[in-house]
Measured scan of single mutants.
Amino acid sequence: MAAAAAAGAGPEMVRGQVFDVGPRYTNLSYIGEGAYGMVCSAYDNVNKVRVAIKKISPFEHQTYCQRTLREIKILLRFRHENIIGINDIIRAPTIEQMKDVYIVQDLMETDLYKLLKTQHLSNDHICYFLYQILRGLKYIHSANVLHRDLKPSNLLLNTTCDLKICDFGLARVADPDHDHTGFLTEYVATRWYRAPEIMLNSKGYTKSIDIWSVGCILAEMLSNRPIFPGKHYLDQLNHILGILGSPSQEDLNCIINLKARNYLLSLPHKNKVPWNRLFPNADSKALDLLDKMLTFNPHKRIEVEQALAHPYLEQYYDPSDEPIAEAPFKFDMELDDLPKEKLKELIFEETARFQPGYRS
């Protein structure tokens, strides 16, 4: 834990890192770190609560700039109880001085990944967590956004079992017609939660990839272990087919990539493993919904509104309290091709509203 900075004593240090967030945020305490930044909790002297502050230093890398800009653009436009918001952003007053960006968010005690390492969940908890994931996802999908990296560590939890989806750095506007060349190379989302079509096709992607990830998360809540822990690309596919069985001819016809289709045709026939054999203690309604989410063919996979209306979630289902976005989200430009200098300018502009004396 960093010592509390005395008023006016300059930035606090946390594990050798400068955290320049005073005077409003003090009493910093280390939480963890990701690929390009550290997260601390801090005391907000204005709202009198502890908050989470993520320090991001992305400006050396085009990919990190892209992810940072995506996350900020999306989260500043989203407003939903099951999606983490941005409360404040701290950065230098000029673009030349801006080396880091500090993002202030609600402090959540833990995440689903940490929880599943230590606790076996009751059916009631599984049901409530799944409902909140789908409630947040309904809003995301209504904005025409794909999260693309749903996994237990991106689901934040607090002691009252509130759940918030975080990390929109890989999110995209849904565009089933656009052929994202190089899709697989830039697709760094965790393999275990990846839909089979991501490994088999490169053309376009749809909201059904997020539903697949939610199915993987439900299976993990039922058993405290990942359902498809593939060691590499082909191993991942083999794990999936080992449980779902061989795809039907109709399902194979959806695979545009001939090499991928021929690979699947070359494999020995596998039978589907019954879900109640894998999860003998699970609620039968939970397994019915799991089956509809972990469907090989993305066109037959359940959609988020149908999933919310499934009998497993009937005690929570309330369409009048499951809000959607006001308007579909649009990125003005494809960020993939922009140089990091341009992305830095866009991050600077996007964060201006939090600067003292800002006038829109």
Rank of each mutant, 00 (worst) to 15 (best):
A7V: 07
A9E: 12
M13L: 15
R15T: 10
R15P: 07
R24A: 03
Y25I: 10
N27L: 07
N27W: 00
I31C: 06
G34A: 12
Y36W: 12
C40R: 15
D44V: 12
V49I: 15
I53Q: 14
K54L: 04
K54W: 02
K55S: 11
F59C: 15
E60Q: 15
H61M: 07
Y64Q: 14
C65D: 05
Q66P: 12
T68E: 15
R70V: 05
R77D: 05
E81W: 02
N82A: 08
N82E: 06
N87S: 03
N87C: 06
D88I: 05
I89R: 04
A92C: 01
E96A: 12
V101A: 13
V104K: 02
Q105E: 15
Q105H: 13
L107K: 10
L107G: 01
L107V: 10
M108P: 01
E109I: 00
E109H: 05
Y113F: 15
L116M: 13
T118V: 06
N123F: 09
N123Q: 09
H125A: 08
I126K: 07
L130V: 11
R135T: 07
R135K: 01
L137H: 09
I140T: 00
S142A: 01
N144E: 03
N144L: 03
N154K: 13
L155N: 03
L156P: 00
D162Y: 14
K164G: 09
G169A: 12
L170V: 00
A171F: 03
R172L: 14
A174M: 13
A174E: 11
D177T: 07
T181M: 10
F183N: 11
T185S: 15
E186V: 13
R191S: 11
W192R: 15
R194M: 07
I211F: 15
W212Q: 04
V214R: 05
C216K: 04
I217K: 11
E220K: 13
N224I: 15
R225N: 08
P226Y: 03
F228S: 06
G230N: 00
H232W: 03
D235A: 12
Q236T: 01
H239D: 11
S246L: 05
S248H: 02
Q249G: 01
N253C: 04
N257R: 09
V273R: 05
P274L: 11
W275K: 06
N276F: 06
R277T: 12
N281V: 09
D283H: 08
K285H: 04
A286V: 10
A286S: 13
T295Y: 02
F296L: 15
P298F: 03
K300W: 07
Q315A: 05
Y316A: 05
Y316C: 00
P319H: 08
P319S: 11
S320G: 04
L335E: 01
L338H: 05
L338V: 05
E341V: 14
K344F: 08
K344M: 14
E349Y: 04
E350H: 07
R359G: 13
R359C: 08
